[in-house]
């Protein structure tokens, strides 16, 4: 019998608001891989994550996570949605937010449990957030909030992280630090990471593979194979150009960005 990967999409298509946003998607991700999901706004990067979370049902085809059909609320996937910052006035302790990731979906009152407290403490330690775990989440910086959210995503024993633009609105130092943290979680714990990004550059040194979503289709491979003028032009269906700056950054020029139709990047 063939060993199934962490994620497998077969002939998948997704519909959003009546419109097919991508079709014919075949994709396989192996356990422990760090995969970046790239593409222009509105191409359906977030929808790809929501499909494997079971939040957005597929219009066609199938998606399997760790060999099983997806279902909403699975402990195996930790999710970090695309967001603005937490409301500065939200007066809930950071550590309580992590705890909600463990048993927040259960009914009834939360009773003291040393095992659960230890599990939460372990995750807070892992992401390096122990120093500010007792402060209200709204008062933390963007980078601190991301660390707490990664701990929350991992705490229920997730083997896969689905991260939607976790580096957005962070400064360069924090982008670097969070990318390194994700890489180290991926390596030391064998966690599969799917990370949606608007810009490949901060994560380029860390990813194993990129998945490019554009023009209603998906292309995956090594960054240097996929992010090339010819490949992306074929994928977009319109001319785009990939430039390499002298400091090693990659810039994609001429990519089509739909205007005003979708305030959220789905």
């Amino acid at each position: 019998m063939r060993i199934l990967g962490a994620l497998q999409l077969d002939h998948a298509a997704a519909r959003l608001g009546g419109r097919l946003i991508w079709t014919e998607v075949d994709l396989e991700v192996q356990e422990g891989e760090f995969v970046a999901i790239l593409g222009p706004n509105g191409a359906g990067k977030s929808t790809l994550l929501k499909a494997l979370l079971g939040v957005v049902p597929l219009a066609e085809g199938s998606v399997r996570v760790f060999g099983r059909p997806v279902r909403r609320g699975s402990d195996e996937i930790g999710y970090l949605p695309q967001r603005r910052r937490f409301d500065p006035d939200l007066r809930i302790r950071a550590v309580d937010l992590v705890r909600l990731g463990l048993d927040g979906e259960r009914w009834g009152m939360s009773l003291p449990s040393p095992a659960k407290t230890n599990r939460v403490a372990e995750m807070v330690e892992l992401v390096g957030a122990a120093a500010y775990q007792d402060r209200p989440i709204g008062e933390l910086s963007g980078g601190e909030q991301q660390r707490i959210l990664i701990a929350q995503a991992l705490v229920s024993g997730a083997r896969m992280l689905a991260l939607d633009e976790p580096l957005e609105s962070l400064d360069l130092n924090n982008q670097q630090a969070i990318s390194e943290l994700i890489r180290s979680i991926c390596q030391t714990r064998g966690v599969t990471v799917l990370l949606v990004a608007h810009d490949i550059n901060p994560i380029l040194p860390f990813v194993d593979r990129v998945v490019y979503v554009a023009g209603g289709h998906v292309l995956s491979g090594k960054p240097q194979e996929v992010i090339r003028t010819e490949t992306l032009t074929a994928l977009y269906g319109t001319p785009v150009e990939v430039l390499h700056t002298s400091d090693g950054r990659i810039v994609v020029v001429g990519q089509y960005e739909p205007v005003t139709h979708h305030p959220d990047d789905h």
Binding site: G73, R83, E105
Partner: peptide, 8 residues
């Protein structure tokens, strides 16, 4: 958003 993804 996270709550909904977790089945709440």
């Amino acid at each position: 958003d996270v709550a909904q993804a977790r089945g709440v």
